[in-house]
Simulated scan of single mutants.
Amino acid sequence: MKIYAPTIPVCQLDENNYFVGMTTADLDPLENNGHYLLPRLCIKAEPPELRVGYVAQWCDTEWQYIEDHRYEVFYSKETGEVVVIDEPGKLPETVTDTPRPDSFHHWAEKENKWVMSPEAEAQKQQQIDNERKAKINTLLSVATEKIAAYQDMIDFADTEEESTEAEKGLLAWRRYRAALLKYQKGLISELPRTPEE
């Protein structure tokens, strides 16, 4: 009487016949002829070889290898947004693995990269300039408020010590505001640090 192994390795597939992994099939206890009970979506076959960037699919009698980009990050050439690839297969021509640097860039198919037109470059520079001006104006407002507060503290100080401390604060913030104005006019290249830093 032949003795059969209690289990054998089998290939587990998903609903689309893509290889998922290995599992086991149990020997049929009601039959004594080497018949094994295959779990659902399993086949008796040699496991496929692992290939980076591919998934194996069972096609009747053999494995076929399909490109698999499901766990990679891609970007739309039209919008620059992240595109989720949820099916194996060739990549659509509308995606790239290079992220768009910013909203001023557009995809140039001929160069096969993100590029910026002269108009977009001018717009970007204008935006940078506007943001810089807005930041400086905000910092100047804060400095002016601090200067006014320190002046009030000097004017209404109860002690000489209070007045001396307030004068130090006033001087520091006035120096800072003067440096901001120089930065605004391009006379210095580095944004000055606030007296609180």
Rank of each mutant, 00 (worst) to 15 (best):
P88K: 13
E78P: 01
E81M: 13
L91Q: 08
T144R: 09
Q125P: 01
I154T: 11
R174I: 00
D129L: 05
A166N: 09
S76M: 08
Y176D: 00
E119V: 13
S117R: 06
L180C: 04
E93A: 14
L171M: 07
R100F: 02
K110D: 13
E93K: 11
A149D: 10
I85R: 02
Q126D: 15
A134E: 13
K113P: 00
P88S: 11
K168V: 12
K135R: 15
P101D: 03
Q151K: 15
S141G: 14
A166C: 05
L181Q: 09
V95Y: 08
G89V: 02
N130G: 04
M116C: 07
S189W: 01
M116T: 07
R100D: 00
Q123K: 10
R132I: 04
Q184E: 10
Q126L: 14
K135H: 15
T98W: 00
L171I: 00
K168E: 14
S103E: 13
K182F: 07
K182R: 15
K124W: 06
V84F: 02
V84A: 08
L181D: 07
A122P: 00
N130Y: 09
L191V: 05
K185E: 09
I136M: 11
L187D: 09
R175Y: 06
P99G: 03
L170F: 13
E111R: 08
A148N: 12
I128T: 12
Q126E: 15
G186W: 06
R132T: 11
E111Y: 04
E109P: 02
A166S: 09
A122D: 04
Y150G: 00
S163W: 00
D152G: 10
V115Q: 02
D129C: 00
N137L: 10
T159E: 07
I136H: 07
A172K: 11
R177A: 14
S76Q: 09
T159F: 04
T159S: 11
A120M: 10
P92C: 11
E190V: 09
P99A: 02
Q151P: 06
K90H: 08
K182L: 14
E78N: 10
E121G: 07
A134N: 12
K90L: 08
D155E: 14
Q125L: 12
Y176P: 01
T164E: 11
T79V: 02
L91G: 13
R100G: 01
G186Y: 08
I128M: 07
K77C: 12
V83G: 03
A178K: 08
L140K: 14
K110Q: 05
L171T: 15
I85E: 05
E167A: 12
K124M: 10
D158G: 13
I154M: 15
E161R: 09
I85S: 05
P92R: 10
K135L: 15
H105L: 01
T159Q: 03
V95C: 05
F156W: 14
W173C: 02
W173Y: 11
S189T: 08
G80K: 05
E165D: 12
S141K: 13
I128D: 09
V84I: 11
R177E: 12
T144S: 14
D158S: 13
E190P: 00
A149C: 01
M116R: 04
E165N: 10
A143G: 14
S189R: 02
G89P: 00
K110A: 13
Y150D: 05
Y183R: 12
R175T: 07
K113W: 00
K182Q: 13
E131V: 10
E111T: 06
E87K: 15
G186A: 08
L139Q: 13
R174T: 12
K182E: 10
I188F: 08
E78M: 11
